[in-house]
Design a protein around this nucleic acid. Sequence first.
DNA 1: TGCACGATAATCT
DNA 2: GATTATCGTGCAA
Length: 190
Amino acid sequence: MRRAEIPEDATELARFLIGRTLVRERGRARIVGRIVETEAYLPHDAAAHSFIGMTPRNRSLFLEHGHAYVYFCYGAHFMLNVSAGPEGVGCGVLLRAIEPMNGNVRPAFDFARGPGRLAKAFHVDRRFDGIDLCATGPLWLGGALAPIGEIGTSVRIGISKDAHRPLRFFERGNPHVSGPRRLNGDGAKT
DNA sequence: TGCACGATAATCT
DNA sequence: GATTATCGTGCAA
């Protein structure tokens, strides 16, 4: 996907990425999946890592939109984000769940359900921090390969500050979406 | 230099 | 549903 095609605004980008694909080239192997759940982290958002200003850890969030921000959390998991906003503005989109699209084998339903499993399933670690997801390489964003269903919204998961804002987006009814059922039901607005 | 804690997930009951 | 494994980061001292 060309950078010019994707929204710069974090909230718009989070919504836009639902249904698009993430591709991981790994030698001869290729892992492809549809993004089905995202969360937006805005500039000046107390729940965002960029809130405290630019540091060595979060500097990738300040890159031009379409770059990867990968960080390590809870001593065990990597999280993959797509940076948003123009260069110098710290905001981004956390990729929370992906529906596997690899043809032949059918991976487990929870293959990439949840941000930690997602990074693991796509073999993403800190080495991918800062790479351009709009360029050809080991990890990149592709267009939608299938029709995109209705998009639901809810509050974000696992945060304590600014926890009420509806900045989580997901494809409604998709079993590969993570999170408690109450957030994914019909009550959630489109 | 120390230390509290986090945008979780596996493993229990 | 509760517990806990596990470690880098940021801030205080």
